[in-house]
Design a protein around this nucleic acid. Structure first.
Lengths: 252, 252
DNA sequence: CGCCTAATTGACTCAAGTCAAATTCTGTGG
DNA sequence: CCACAGAATTTGACTTGAGTCAATTAGGCG
């Protein structure tokens, strides 16, 4: 299953095919530190176990699964959700290409949430102990990893702000604005994209019901701020949405 | 300001006084990895800049401050809160001795929240770049650090679950239960402790108003589950509180 | 003792939830 | 290509849990 997992480095000529090398990945600017040396890139390629396809609606991992690997999303979208003892669940995030999954499992060596592909996706499996092994010799890689964990902490804090303080309309505007900027960073349109998740998943993430999401979509549409057709979304007034998210504008 | 910051290791006889060494700190079991060698402990002591006292109601850092250090709480309690552009704030956590503050600032090298002492407190300042320098040579320390960051991610995810899914009564029960278990880990009573924060801060953290917190306290008191007198709290029925938090029990 | 802030309690309101029904999509098989 | 079943979404009518506003009460401290 695992291709070239050289304990001793494989000769250059035998290394993995172009399409699966970090240096050839369109996401390496987000996923990896800038200015990593060619040789270091190769060493990284060597510890990456394999590229795994994850079909739509399939689990990448589940609560309680033992943790051994992190996953870098090469392609596609995921959601993560927590399940409480009582059985009800909370979507804790939507992840897209270039983002890292599984960091919450490091502390207990068990996954704390389920990760599910929202569409046919592909991830790189990164055995964590081997990655930690590299850190000692590649400080920029370590620093980048810390930045990614830190970023996840920051992201979650802003969700806490959203869930704890904002009204429905603000939450949803913040959600759209957030997606917009993430697509923009990835070189996609910031004003026109597809929602990869159902209304129900959005609602769950934002602490609202599916009906509320539906009503908000209608309201924003009526105001002329967005154009919606099923999962296709166009932001006609991104500035307004930002203002609503910031709380400096309402839509009454 | 900075005491012994030996570039070359200081001779053993000159090292910091006992009371400020990691090995002598009552929190080192929580703060540091278990089984760190004596020599490694010494090297750690040498990079710790100083122990700083933080008087009650005083900022340890503010949003936007440049990030250079992490802070390990030696003594006391803190709260962190986010402030959104509009000015309203969300308490994102209450931290106690042995916990680490500032990890959210690594990604941008600026703090993303305010950290404020809830009582007269004391922290160890840990220059982050020096800490990263040690990681290469002390893998267990690195691993422990990753566990602490990961734990913070997990903690925030459960707050998301709380804010997104739970009713007021569940949230508050979960909050009390959480404090209880954290005191327990630190060797304090799990059923009798002081609330170091105001009702208002609790409410803000839980996405509720001060009035709701007050009503919940009264309700739990009437049920005979707790005893309250100002900030002093006693959990008479921790099992009930856990059940309410889990959603398997209501208090109607 | 008296001032100021924190907390409690009650009465009323409202934003978002619940329930229900209608409509639109999606995918599958004939 | 069309019909149809099941799922997802939208919309409306009504309910409710928690918020708001206001008035007390209790504590902390100079």
């Amino acid at each position: 299953m695992i291709p070239i997992l050289a304990q001793s480095p494989a000769p250059t000529s035998h290394r993995q095919e172009m399409s699966t090398r970090c240096s050839a990945c369109s996401m390496h600017q987000i996923c990896l530190p800038t200015g990593l040396k060619e040789a270091d890139m190769d060493r990284l390629d060597q510890i990456i176990g394999r590229r795994r396809k994850v079909p739509r609606d399939t689990h990448l991992y589940r609560v309680g699964d033992p943790f051994t690997k992190l996953y870098a999303i090469r392609l596609g979208h995921f959601k993560t959700h927590q399940v409480n003892p009582n059985g009800d669940q909370q979507v804790t995030g939507f992840q897209m290409a270039g983002e890292l999954l599984g960091m919450d499992a490091i502390s207990t060596e068990r996954h704390h949430c389920d990760a599910i592909a929202l569409e046919d996706s592909e991830v790189c499996e990164i055995p964590f102990s081997r990655l930690e092994g590299l850190f000692g010799e590649m400080p920029p890689l370590l620093h980048h990893f810390h930045r990614m964990m830190s970023q996840e902490i920051t992201r979650e804090q802003s969700v806490m702000l959203l869930l704890g303080n904002m009204r429905a309309e603000q939450r949803f505007a913040a959600f759209l604005t957030n997606l917009s900027s993430r697509y923009s960073v990835r070189g996609y349109s910031s004003t026109s994209f597809q929602l990869r998740m159902t209304r129900e998943e959005i609602g769950n993430y934002l602490g609202l019901t599916i009906e509320s999401i539906s009503r908000l979509l209608s309201k924003f549409k009526k105001r002329g701020w967005i154009k919606v057709s099923n999962r296709d979304l166009e932001l006609l007034e991104p500035g307004m949405l930002k203002a609503v998210a910031a709380g400096t504008q309402t839509c009454a």
